[in-house]
Every structure is written in C-alpha cells, then in structure tokens.
Lab assay of single mutants.
Amino acid sequence: THFTSQQLQELEATFQRNHYPDMSTREEIAVWTNLTEARVRVWFKNRRAKWR
C-alpha cells in the first residue's frame, strides 16, 4: 500500500503519542486518513518493528 504524505503525517503523529493505539483509536485514524482499520493496524505493527 502506498500512503500519501498526509496519511503518513497523521499516522506518524499518532505513533509519537501512542505506539499501541486501541481499536477505537485505529478506527478514528482510518476515518481521518481514508484507510481501512486493517491497513492502519498493519502500519502500526510494521512501524513498531522499525522503531525497535
């Protein structure tokens, strides 16, 4: 999946605040970024792996 810079900005900003967002937070992010909750969940999983 290719993310727009706007989507990445929103995802990264949320990641800085919370590395493990809950389901409702992921659903909110999905609405803001026009992505599915599953895409958001996978992005956070991959981002945490990169962060370690």
Score class of each variant (00 low, 15 high):
residue 1 T to Y: 13
residue 1 T to C: 14
residue 1 T to N: 12
residue 1 T to A: 12
residue 1 T to I: 11
residue 1 T to Q: 11
residue 1 T to H: 12
residue 1 T to R: 12
residue 2 H to S: 12
residue 2 H to E: 11
residue 2 H to T: 10
residue 2 H to V: 11
residue 2 H to F: 11
residue 2 H to D: 11
residue 2 H to A: 11
residue 3 F to L: 14
residue 3 F to M: 10
residue 3 F to S: 03
residue 3 F to G: 01
residue 3 F to D: 02
residue 3 F to A: 03
residue 3 F to K: 03
residue 4 T to N: 07
residue 4 T to Y: 05
residue 4 T to L: 05
residue 4 T to C: 06
residue 4 T to P: 03
residue 4 T to K: 04
residue 4 T to G: 04
residue 5 S to G: 08
residue 5 S to K: 14
residue 5 S to D: 11
residue 5 S to T: 12
residue 5 S to I: 12
residue 6 Q to K: 13
residue 6 Q to Y: 13
residue 6 Q to I: 11
residue 6 Q to G: 08
residue 6 Q to D: 10
residue 6 Q to A: 12
residue 7 Q to Y: 04
residue 7 Q to S: 04
residue 7 Q to E: 04
residue 7 Q to P: 01
residue 7 Q to W: 05
residue 7 Q to N: 04
residue 7 Q to F: 04
residue 7 Q to I: 08
residue 8 L to D: 05
residue 8 L to V: 08
residue 8 L to P: 00
residue 8 L to H: 07
residue 8 L to E: 10
residue 8 L to K: 07
residue 9 Q to T: 10
residue 9 Q to N: 09
residue 9 Q to F: 11
residue 9 Q to C: 14
residue 9 Q to A: 13
residue 9 Q to D: 09
residue 10 E to A: 15
residue 10 E to C: 15
residue 10 E to P: 01
residue 10 E to H: 15
residue 10 E to D: 12
residue 10 E to T: 15
residue 11 L to D: 02
residue 11 L to G: 01
residue 11 L to T: 00
residue 11 L to P: 01
residue 11 L to E: 01
residue 11 L to S: 01
residue 12 E to H: 03
residue 12 E to L: 03
residue 12 E to W: 05
residue 12 E to R: 02
residue 12 E to N: 05
residue 13 A to H: 09
residue 13 A to M: 12
residue 13 A to W: 12
residue 13 A to T: 09
residue 13 A to E: 10
residue 13 A to F: 10
residue 13 A to S: 11
residue 13 A to R: 13
residue 14 T to C: 15
residue 14 T to F: 15
residue 14 T to M: 15
residue 14 T to P: 01
residue 14 T to N: 15
residue 14 T to S: 15
residue 14 T to E: 14
residue 15 F to Q: 01
residue 15 F to K: 01
residue 15 F to Y: 06
residue 15 F to I: 00
residue 15 F to V: 02
residue 16 Q to F: 07
residue 16 Q to E: 09
residue 16 Q to G: 07
residue 16 Q to V: 08
residue 16 Q to T: 08
residue 17 R to V: 10
residue 17 R to K: 13
residue 17 R to E: 07
residue 17 R to Y: 09
residue 17 R to M: 11
residue 17 R to Q: 10
residue 17 R to F: 09
residue 18 N to Q: 06
residue 18 N to W: 08
residue 18 N to A: 04
residue 18 N to P: 00
residue 19 H to D: 02
residue 19 H to T: 03
residue 19 H to F: 06
residue 19 H to E: 03
residue 19 H to S: 05
residue 19 H to M: 13
residue 19 H to L: 04
residue 19 H to W: 06
residue 19 H to V: 05
residue 19 H to Q: 11
residue 20 Y to R: 05
residue 20 Y to L: 03
residue 20 Y to N: 06
residue 20 Y to F: 12
residue 20 Y to V: 04
residue 20 Y to E: 03
residue 20 Y to G: 01
residue 21 P to G: 03
residue 21 P to D: 01
residue 21 P to Y: 02
residue 21 P to S: 02
residue 21 P to C: 06
residue 21 P to M: 03
residue 21 P to Q: 02
residue 21 P to E: 01
residue 22 D to A: 08
residue 22 D to F: 02
residue 22 D to E: 04
residue 22 D to H: 05
residue 22 D to T: 11
residue 22 D to C: 05
residue 22 D to L: 04
residue 22 D to P: 07
residue 23 M to T: 08
residue 23 M to W: 10
residue 23 M to L: 14
residue 23 M to N: 06
residue 23 M to D: 05
residue 23 M to I: 10
residue 23 M to F: 14
residue 24 S to I: 11
residue 24 S to D: 09
residue 24 S to W: 08
residue 24 S to V: 12
residue 24 S to M: 10
residue 25 T to I: 08
residue 25 T to H: 07
residue 25 T to D: 08
residue 25 T to P: 00
residue 25 T to A: 11
residue 25 T to W: 06
residue 25 T to L: 11
residue 25 T to E: 13
residue 25 T to V: 08
residue 25 T to M: 13
residue 25 T to K: 09
residue 26 R to K: 02
residue 26 R to A: 03
residue 26 R to C: 07
residue 26 R to N: 02
residue 26 R to H: 01
residue 26 R to Q: 03
residue 26 R to T: 05
residue 26 R to L: 09
residue 26 R to Y: 08
residue 27 E to Y: 12
residue 27 E to V: 13
residue 27 E to G: 06
residue 27 E to N: 11
residue 27 E to S: 10
residue 28 E to Q: 14
residue 28 E to L: 14
residue 28 E to W: 13
residue 28 E to Y: 09
residue 28 E to D: 09
residue 28 E to C: 13
residue 28 E to I: 12
residue 28 E to K: 14
residue 29 I to G: 01
residue 29 I to S: 00
residue 30 A to Q: 02
residue 30 A to C: 05
residue 30 A to N: 01
residue 30 A to T: 03
residue 30 A to W: 04
residue 30 A to Y: 03
residue 30 A to M: 03
residue 30 A to G: 07
residue 30 A to V: 02
residue 30 A to E: 02
residue 31 V to G: 10
residue 31 V to D: 08
residue 31 V to K: 15
residue 31 V to R: 15
residue 31 V to S: 12
residue 31 V to M: 13
residue 32 W to R: 15
residue 32 W to S: 15
residue 32 W to E: 11
residue 32 W to C: 14
residue 32 W to N: 15
residue 32 W to F: 13
residue 32 W to T: 14
residue 32 W to P: 02
residue 32 W to H: 14
residue 32 W to M: 15
residue 33 T to C: 11
residue 33 T to M: 14
residue 33 T to A: 07
residue 34 N to L: 06
residue 34 N to E: 07
residue 34 N to P: 01
residue 34 N to R: 07
residue 34 N to T: 05
residue 34 N to I: 05
residue 35 L to S: 13
residue 35 L to M: 10
residue 35 L to A: 07
residue 35 L to V: 07
residue 35 L to Y: 02
residue 36 T to C: 06
residue 36 T to M: 03
residue 36 T to Y: 03
residue 36 T to W: 04
residue 36 T to S: 09
residue 37 E to F: 04
residue 37 E to Y: 03
residue 37 E to W: 04
residue 37 E to D: 03
residue 37 E to L: 05
residue 38 A to F: 13
residue 38 A to S: 11
residue 38 A to W: 12
residue 38 A to D: 10
residue 38 A to R: 12
residue 39 R to T: 14
residue 39 R to A: 15
residue 39 R to Q: 15
residue 40 V to G: 00
residue 40 V to T: 00
residue 40 V to C: 02
residue 41 R to Y: 07
residue 41 R to C: 07
residue 41 R to M: 06
residue 41 R to F: 06
residue 41 R to P: 00
residue 41 R to G: 05
residue 42 V to D: 12
residue 42 V to H: 12
residue 42 V to F: 11
residue 42 V to L: 14
residue 43 W to H: 00
residue 43 W to D: 00
residue 43 W to S: 01
residue 44 F to W: 03
residue 44 F to M: 04
residue 44 F to R: 00
residue 44 F to N: 00
residue 44 F to A: 00
residue 45 K to P: 00
residue 45 K to C: 10
residue 45 K to Q: 11
residue 45 K to E: 09
residue 45 K to R: 12
residue 46 N to H: 12
residue 46 N to S: 08
residue 46 N to M: 14
residue 46 N to V: 13
residue 47 R to K: 05
residue 47 R to G: 02
residue 47 R to T: 02
residue 47 R to I: 02
residue 47 R to D: 01
residue 47 R to Q: 04
residue 47 R to F: 03
residue 47 R to S: 02
residue 48 R to N: 04
residue 48 R to K: 02
residue 48 R to P: 00
residue 48 R to G: 01
residue 48 R to S: 02
residue 48 R to H: 03
residue 48 R to F: 04
residue 48 R to V: 06
residue 49 A to I: 10
residue 49 A to W: 07
residue 49 A to Q: 10
residue 49 A to M: 09
residue 49 A to L: 09
residue 49 A to E: 09
residue 49 A to Y: 08
residue 49 A to S: 07
residue 50 K to F: 08
residue 50 K to R: 13
residue 50 K to G: 07
residue 50 K to S: 08
residue 50 K to W: 08
residue 50 K to Q: 13
residue 50 K to V: 12
residue 51 W to H: 13
residue 51 W to F: 10
residue 51 W to K: 06
residue 51 W to S: 06
residue 51 W to C: 11
residue 51 W to R: 05
residue 52 R to Q: 10
residue 52 R to C: 10
residue 52 R to T: 08
residue 52 R to E: 08
residue 52 R to F: 12
residue 52 R to W: 10
residue 52 R to K: 11
residue 52 R to Y: 12
residue 52 R to D: 07
residue 52 R to V: 09
